[in-house]
Design a protein around this nucleic acid. Structure first.
Lengths: 213, 213
DNA sequence: GCGTGGCTACCCCCTAAGAGGTAGCCAGAT
DNA sequence: ATCTGGCTACCTCTTAGGGGGTAGCCACGC
């Protein structure tokens, strides 16, 4: 089998150069292309014959997560590993859920990083060890949101959450609580953020599972 | 207090006449208007000064349920009682959820019907006794959908329901099951109908409560 | 052979939902 | 007296969701 062909996606030229140098230290891998934003990366993924994509998260003009999603919905089944500075729960979870095959932090030791990249190319799911705690929390909780997240909610947000757990729409909640639908939206938005969830459906399921009633 | 002013909504002139005659046997009540379809009824509800609306379900040009919803979202707080032939679970549940103050079947004895209409005008929630079993089922289940509703789902619909119970979006489900988002929508639509639910949130909550996993 | 149910996919159309932002009001803390 | 957090309300913008319909394909039963 020939060399492993890799695409680097990062908005920082110097960083790309660093990665290129690191990767090409290994005779089995080569950088087949570079992209400096999400749009370019999606195009490149469609044109180049790739084995692995190293994708940054924070980029102007379509960020890494969105680029990942677009590629997956375009049917791209190349292995895609996020390579970013962000160790935020949300980012990790979102990337993995969107179909990333790995999530590596940029502050890893170069040798370590290289080893992980090789593993990723071989089909392994690679994750920076620092992220273990986050993942454990997600797995054990069944879902995001630390156990004490409930107590961070205001009483009004709890009202809304309880209504969500009963399947009510924003409009119904508004009528029941005698506030405007817009205000309900604000509360839903805020409680989703506090709980680290992404939709009212997740919130409703979470509430039922945590016996919020 | 003056007479109770009533609006009859039904697409059948003869039926309206019958109701009018029945209602006006009572000196305390008068028919303030008639409408033969949903559109007319919504207009009438906005113009006339009404105490009670008797609404049929099956009508062309906006059915009774939809008319009810429109009135409620227009801020109409007149008492609205459905008067229909349908004893289908779905219809009863949908009407009550949409804000109906009663649900009467057309095959009631006239005297009985008149008595119920008077009660409704007085603010009571009136329901034909034949519907008791349906309502009991709904209450005990905590939510609509008879106990055997689950078995009416196809295996694919069960797949989708399980995914819903995990809070997934249509797009995520599509990716996971390797079908298009449109197809997922079709399955969601169908399972909602089978379960008598109105949104994916209700479906998710229902699934969690019924331990669909 | 034919019909039926299940799965898939697409169409149009409209509403619901959610992300951003600004802002007024109030109560409790400093 | 000022600040902060909570609740309310509004704005815009974009995507997600759901109702309606048609239709092809396949496996099953009759």
């Amino acid at each position: 089998m020939s060399e492993t062909r890799i695409l680097i996606v990062d908005d920082h030229p110097l960083f790309r150069r660093g990665v290129r140098q690191l990767v090409e230290m290994d005779p089995g891998m080569t950088i087949a292309g570079e992209a400096s934003n999400g749009v370019e990366s999606v195009e490149a993924a469609g044109q180049l014959d790739l084995d692995l994509i190293l994708m940054d998260l924070n980029m102007a003009n379509v960020d890494g997560l969105e680029a990942l999603r677009q590629m997956r919905s375009n049917g791209v089944d190349t292995r895609i590993v996020m390579l970013t500075v962000s160790d935020a729960d949300d980012d990790v979870v979102a990337a993995l859920r969107a179909g990333a095959d790995g999530y590596l932090l940029k502050d890893m030791e170069p040798e370590d990083l290289l080893a992980r990249i090789k593993e990723a190319a071989e089909g392994k799911l690679v994750i920076s060890p620092q992220l273990a705690a986050i993942l454990a929390g997600i797995v054990s909780g069944g879902r995001a949101a630390p156990a004490d997240a409930l107590s961070s909610l205001t009483s009004r947000e709890l009202d809304i959450l309880r209504a969500l757990a009963r399947g009510m729409s924003n409009k119904m909640i508004a009528r029941r609580l005698d506030i405007t639908e817009g205000t309900v939206k604000v509360h839903v938005k805020n409680l989703l953020k506090k709980l680290g969830l992404r939709s009212r459906v997740e919130a409703a399921v979470w509430a039922v599972n945590h016996e919020v009633s």
